[in-house]
Design a protein around this nucleic acid. Sequence first.
DNA 1: GATGAATGAGGGTTCATTCAT
DNA 2: TATGAATGAACCCTCATTCAT
Lengths: 235, 235, 235, 235
Amino acid sequence: MTEASTSAASGRRASRGRIDKRQAILEAAFTVFAREGYANACVKVIAAEAGVAKPTVYNHLSDKANLFRHAIEAASDTAMAQNLAVVGRLATPGDDLRAALEDVGDRLLLCYSSDESWALRRLIYAESARFPDLLDVVRGGGPTNRVTEALADRLARLALDGRLRLSDPAQAAEQYIALLTGPMEERSRFGTEQVPADEQRRLVRAAVHTFLQAFGTGAADSAGSANAQGIVKGS
Amino acid sequence: MTEASTSAASGRRASRGRIDKRQAILEAAFTVFAREGYANACVKVIAAEAGVAKPTVYNHLSDKANLFRHAIEAASDTAMAQNLAVVGRLATPGDDLRAALEDVGDRLLLCYSSDESWALRRLIYAESARFPDLLDVVRGGGPTNRVTEALADRLARLALDGRLRLSDPAQAAEQYIALLTGPMEERSRFGTEQVPADEQRRLVRAAVHTFLQAFGTGAADSAGSANAQGIVKGS
Amino acid sequence: MTEASTSAASGRRASRGRIDKRQAILEAAFTVFAREGYANACVKVIAAEAGVAKPTVYNHLSDKANLFRHAIEAASDTAMAQNLAVVGRLATPGDDLRAALEDVGDRLLLCYSSDESWALRRLIYAESARFPDLLDVVRGGGPTNRVTEALADRLARLALDGRLRLSDPAQAAEQYIALLTGPMEERSRFGTEQVPADEQRRLVRAAVHTFLQAFGTGAADSAGSANAQGIVKGS
Amino acid sequence: MTEASTSAASGRRASRGRIDKRQAILEAAFTVFAREGYANACVKVIAAEAGVAKPTVYNHLSDKANLFRHAIEAASDTAMAQNLAVVGRLATPGDDLRAALEDVGDRLLLCYSSDESWALRRLIYAESARFPDLLDVVRGGGPTNRVTEALADRLARLALDGRLRLSDPAQAAEQYIALLTGPMEERSRFGTEQVPADEQRRLVRAAVHTFLQAFGTGAADSAGSANAQGIVKGS
DNA sequence: GATGAATGAGGGTTCATTCAT
DNA sequence: TATGAATGAACCCTCATTCAT
């Protein structure tokens, strides 16, 4: 075997492995940062978790701070994609708008409740003061959160279609998200404990109920969820 | 001045000094933890900020972890008291319920937007996994947040008075808080930047608007704020 | 009650308590030093063990080093007195010299094997380099060990009486002690473990046997212990 | 010089360097521990003495306690080897058994009196309570001291050859060692001061004299040393 | 490119000792 | 005299980072 072929092969393998290795490092980094927090996490442990030597981490990602940023970015991208996919479902809401909003709410909360998602938020919350650029990462690069934006788009469309009554889709989207996720923080003890599925569903129904009270047209409600506040009509 | 009075005075000064010193340490600790995060903060700096020697910190608060807990608790108590005072204003809502809710909203957001408040939330968020008991501290010791609870009490009273329409006051309170604070997180970049006062007010009005759409009776609205969504009737 | 009588009473009580307190401190010090070693022991713990405040320790004994010296001295004096008492028994050896030597050997080993005795030796051994004056303390103040000296006196008397055959009583005394205690060190793992009583007795008999082989006259042996080496005569 | 030889050389130098460094650390550690005692010794000083940075010490030996154990072990191994070599000389005792025993005694005492040897014993004595496993190290790993054992072997052989009269070689060995080393402890002030060579020799002769009185056959003594007690026959 | 080894800097914690009461 | 409180000095250990291979 010639030296050239060797180096080519190993080069390809290497560059293939290079990407894999970088990926492994980033994943390990997120795992460890999530578990230990930024300052407490140590590069040695990350390297071990990734199955590489410590200097390799530095070769790929120069810095602990850089490593952190990229790990957060990767995790954030994954979460963002999931969220956007969920919001995308509102493009075809079907006849029952309430059901659609509840379906999206359920799914969003599922994403929101995952360990990774909580870890991500914890890290960003914790380090936002020391890593100001992290916010742009989590928002998807824009000045406003891309998920809220996408949701606002959908809501605007629904308003145009006469199925919602609202003038500021961005604000409505924000409130939808707030109603959905706000009550989750303490109930899950900031992601430390699991919120029972039925409690989550009740939360979603209540959120959508309030949302539709504020922004609905009163037309397309499904009867079953009409009363998340538990008010028995006629009583 | 007699010797007795002297020693009494200096005795008082001494014991005052002890308490003052502990207070100073806790305040310095919160300041530093807020600025640096738990793991990054170093006791030496805290001691310097408090104007005492490092061992004094350990004499008073045994541990870095303990120091953290107590600093958080102190800050949390302060914040809690402020919040409860604000919520207490709903005991005498006046004729204009919307105005009262907006007033409370404004004031809550004022508390919520303070640097200390953000720092507190950031720290709790960040360390909740490593300090599980922190949550009980911030909730005021009970199983549910005392602020939400107090608010729920007020809302229940208003419902009894026929000025709100709701069956689950705790849930309504949660949603009120969520509508109020949820949109603040990203707008303030997690407390990193100041949200302009008028934007805050708009947020409050929008939150109260949605809240009243969901839980109001339609009776006692003030005309001026009727339209937080910005829909100008008749235009 | 007059002020004078009060102060007199408390004065007497105080000076009484003063001595008690000093005693308590020294005992506590020895206990702690024995348990932790000199460098590891901390004055705070000693004070606690003595039931006094830390500065009181310093009032009484100025220094950690001084405290150590005095604690060692006190313990050493106790041990020395016990040893001397035991050696004194050789003044009236009775008819059976072997029995007398074995009796003294047993008793010396009992002293030697006590926890305090081991602790004392460990401390002196450990710190002899850093506290050179400790040696004089343990020897009882003289240039040679007072116990060995006293023993030498007894042996000399026995030699004069024709019951031993030796010209250098000090050397014989040293060898007696060496034969007695030397084998104990490793068997007891330096005082860490208890040596069974029967093993100790065997040791003593063997030591006395060897001693009498070297220095005995062959006259006054008791038949029973004649054979510590286990040689069955006639076989 | 070719590149290959260079890298080979430097490679060897490197790995040699690693071992050398570990060796240097262990030696420095023993030196410092010997001088300061375990608790008083500080790793920083050890590192300096070894010519490495502090973390290097931790890289090689994880712990202060571990460092101590290994340093003791290394020193102990050295001492053990020397002792065993000396005892080995008894395999070929020559005609004059007394001379052989005195020769071995002299040499054993030489080992025993070295600074390292004293330091070793002091450290083991001092720390045996806090490092119980140290005893196994110093004994050479077995349940009984390997030196005593080896000596017992030799004595047993001599007994078989009819040159000694003893039934318990282990006990005889113990006593030989005790007679030899026991009187050294205080004379050297626990290794703090040098015992004059002639005094050592006298000690050895006395020890061997007593030993042979107890276990000798009376046959092969050299006339010159017959009288370590200084009894001039006929006077 | 990947790694074992080394290091400067720094952090939490403890301790002997001293004031002020 | 006895003590609660305070402190300067160290010490063990860890970590991010860099060489040399």
